[in-house]
Simulated assay, not measured.
Amino acid sequence: MAECEDTEVTDLEETFTKAASHLQSLAARLDSGQLLGFYALYKQATEGSCESPRPNWYQTQAKHKWEAWKSLGDMSREIAMGSYIRAVGKLDPTWEQDARAESQAWVAVSRLPNTDAELRDIDKTILDWVKDGDVGMVQEALSRDPACVSRSDQDGMLPIHWAADRGHVPTLKCLVERGADVDAQDGGGQTPLHFAASCGHIEAVRYLLSVGATFIADNEGLTPRHIADDEVAAVL
């Protein structure tokens, strides 16, 4: 029995390796969210759960990669490989078997959203929905539990910090209208304006300023102006 299981894992790993190689030819048509999803699944499949320390808040790209990987929690390597393979199949249903019938390919693709929902959506909190930019689910979460607008994660980041980090203005508006503090500080003393400015989200910066955000210094004495690039600094 053990020998059979080892063979199955080996076959899965082989298909996963081929899928990862094929993804290189598809990367140019993927958006940043999709690339982060593939990155996280690849790291989970090859290294297991994320145990590395969280990057500094100003290391934007590294932080987003870390968050994507960390969000997979204790997902097994086998499930991560399977999810990665199915995701490649969604992008290119015939990547593995060019002779596959079109109807068969559609059946395979149509299963991916359900699989992802079972793995990632069932236990999502308002913080997760904010990160996804899903305003509808954010509103639903706030309707069920208005106090969650002020509920932070382990780093002291509130929903409004994450909305600013993502630069999603509709979510920011939703949170502010529900009482979110535009000058709230996380564990490092950063405000939403710090995050929007450091990530280059000009429209988010403009919105936060329009609703009264101020230039508070963080724990290192840096204000949003100190960490903004030239384009954002022109707005501040």
Rank of each mutant, 00 (worst) to 15 (best):
I126R: 08
L172G: 08
Q97T: 14
T191D: 13
V9G: 02
F195R: 12
I216E: 11
L41N: 00
R54S: 11
E96A: 14
I202G: 12
L12W: 09
A40K: 05
R86H: 01
Y39M: 03
I79N: 12
R178A: 11
R111W: 10
D123R: 13
L236V: 04
V138P: 10
Q61L: 06
A80N: 03
R86N: 00
A141W: 05
C199G: 14
M1L: 09
S152N: 04
S110M: 14
V176P: 02
E67T: 02
G167C: 11
S76V: 03
W66C: 11
V107W: 13
D230S: 13
C148Y: 04
D121C: 10
E67C: 03
G136A: 13
F16S: 12
M157S: 00
T115P: 00
L193M: 06
E13W: 09
S52W: 01
L142N: 09
A228E: 00
R144P: 00
Q190S: 07
Q61W: 03
L91E: 00
I216R: 13
G136M: 03
D11A: 14
I126Y: 02
P55H: 01
Q44H: 11
W129S: 00
N56K: 14
D155A: 11
V88A: 03
E51G: 15
G73V: 01
V205H: 05
T171S: 14
Q139W: 02
D155Q: 09
G179A: 10
G189D: 02
L209E: 02
S52T: 15
E8C: 12
W66D: 08
D218N: 15
S83H: 03
I227K: 12
A147Y: 10
K124L: 03
G167P: 13
D186A: 05
K18Y: 05
S52F: 03
D134F: 06
M137H: 12
